[in-house]
Every structure is written in C-alpha cells, then in structure tokens.
Amino acid sequence: MATVILVRHGRSTANTAGLLAGRVDGVNLDELGREQAAATGKRLAAVPLVGVVSSPLERCLQTAQFIIDRQPAAPYAPTDSGLLECDYGQWQGRSLKDLATEELWKVVQSQPSAAAFPGGESLAEMQARSVAAIRRHDAAFESEHGPGAVWAAVSHGDIIKSILADALGMHLDMFQRLNVAPASVSIVHYGPQRPSVYSINTEAGDLSWLAKAAHTGDAPVGGGSGHQAP
C-alpha cells in the first residue's frame, strides 16, 4: 500500500484563545501557525507527493496550501469530510478551562471509547469514519500510483491521534497517551500484513528517504538498518 503523511494544521486562533473550535467557521491559522505550516511545507518539499487530502475547515486548508505550494507539481488536493474535526456538539466553541469542570471531561480523559459529546458524535464514531477515510484514499493512491506512492492528509489533533491509535493496534481508551502538536508530521505505511508507523508527532528532520523508500510488508528482525536518504 501507499504511505500517508499525517499533518495536523498549524496553531489556530482558537488554540491561542483556549477554545474548543470544533467545526466553527472562520477559525484560521494565527501568525505562528502560518510559520509552522510554512516550515512543514518546506520539510515535505523533499517528498514528491501524489496527493494532498484535507479536512474542509479553513485552518486545514490553509496548512494544506503551504504544502502544495512547495511541491514541484500541484498534487491532487480534494477535501474529505471523513477528516473533519470531531463533532463536539454542545461543547463546540466553549473554553477548555470551563469544559475541564464537566463530568464528561473525566470520561474523555480516562475512557474515550465511552465518550459521546452532547448533540455531537462519540469518539468511537470519530475514529471509525476517519480511519475509513484514510484507508480509502490510501488504497486509491496505491492503485493509481503504485506501492511507493506517498501522500499527505491534513487534519486535526484528535483525528490524527485516533488514526495513529488504530495503526498502532491500541485500544481507543489509550489514545490520550499520544500527542500531536500543531503542524506536526506522523507517518504510517499500510502494508499487506499490518500498518507500520514510522514516526509520530515530529516537527523536524529529513524526509527525503520517503522518496525512495522500499516496503516489503515484513518487519525487519532485529530492527533493520534504518532509512537512507537518496
């Protein structure tokens, strides 16, 4: 299968204000967020992407554009509601400080699989539709461009954490152990036997090796020799 680079959007105005933005319109990257997204776009420039798929929310579209602008050929760039932020329902737009006093907050922290947001969706529903979207696009890119294809998905923190938890074989109740910072990069290859997670929450480092990465589907016994830049 292909390899997906999971990119969280850069820091947003809601992040700065301490608000749970959810799906509210008009939440954009702040100045630092634009700098973060530009740096991620520069970092990914070493990898010829066959496509960029984004959540339809502004902060993700803005981040995706920084990536596309650094690609030598404009990659296929659709939006997918499967990568949309969690539907936090009545929690949307409220301050994180206030939400931390809610009983549901404790459930979200300790037993996410049982958490359902009033008027919104459950975290289990969020994971199911986001993983399905990633696997659908991954299979399509592999079919069109071959098993060496590399593509990027630009989405949100909880979405990416849930995708990584699935790839790692972790129960959703453990996904809060993962951290995904603004504009960070995580990498997953969906092989024929199992997903391989190459990185989580990275903000720096050479990615040029992805342009020539060979995937056999087998895990290297003993750890292997690592990836070499072309």
Rank of each mutant, 00 (worst) to 15 (best):
T3I: 09
T3E: 07
R8Q: 13
S12Q: 04
A14F: 15
A14I: 12
A14S: 14
A14C: 11
A14G: 14
N15D: 11
T16A: 11
T16R: 08
G18D: 01
L19S: 09
A21V: 02
V24L: 15
N28W: 11
N28V: 08
R34D: 04
R34W: 08
E35K: 14
A37Q: 12
A37E: 12
A39C: 08
T40F: 05
R43P: 00
A45N: 00
A46V: 11
V50L: 04
G51D: 03
G51L: 08
S55A: 00
L57E: 14
C60L: 01
C60W: 00
C60M: 02
Q62I: 04
Q62K: 06
A64R: 02
F66G: 07
I67P: 01
I68F: 08
I68C: 10
D69L: 07
D69S: 08
P72H: 15
A74H: 11
A77Q: 03
P78R: 03
S81R: 04
S81C: 03
G82H: 03
L83C: 10
L84Y: 09
E85M: 04
D87S: 13
Y88N: 10
Q92C: 06
G93H: 05
L96A: 09
L96E: 12
D98S: 12
D98N: 09
A100K: 12
T101F: 07
E102H: 12
E102V: 09
E103S: 14
L104V: 01
W105K: 02
K106S: 12
Q109S: 04
P112N: 10
S113P: 12
S113D: 15
A114K: 15
A116L: 06
G120A: 04
S122A: 13
S122F: 14
S122K: 14
L123G: 05
A124W: 04
E125R: 05
E125G: 04
A128I: 05
R129D: 06
A132G: 01
A132R: 05
I134N: 05
I134G: 04
H137W: 15
D138N: 15
D138Y: 09
A139S: 14
A139D: 15
A140H: 10
F141W: 12
E142K: 05
E142N: 07
G146N: 02
A149P: 03
A152S: 13
V154L: 01
V154T: 03
V154M: 02
S155I: 00
S155V: 02
G157M: 08
D158I: 08
D158V: 08
I159S: 10
K161R: 14
I163P: 07
L164E: 04
A165K: 07
D166N: 12
M170P: 11
L172I: 02
D173S: 09
F175S: 08
Q176V: 05
L178F: 05
L178C: 05
A181D: 15
A181Y: 09
P182A: 09
S184G: 13
V185W: 04
V188K: 09
H189D: 06
R194Y: 10
S196D: 03
V197N: 01
V197H: 02
N201F: 06
T202K: 12
G205A: 12
G205F: 11
D206F: 07
L207Q: 00
S208V: 09
S208G: 07
W209S: 11
A213E: 07
A214D: 13
G217L: 03
D218E: 15
V221T: 11
G223M: 01
S225A: 12
G226Y: 07
Q228F: 08
P230A: 04
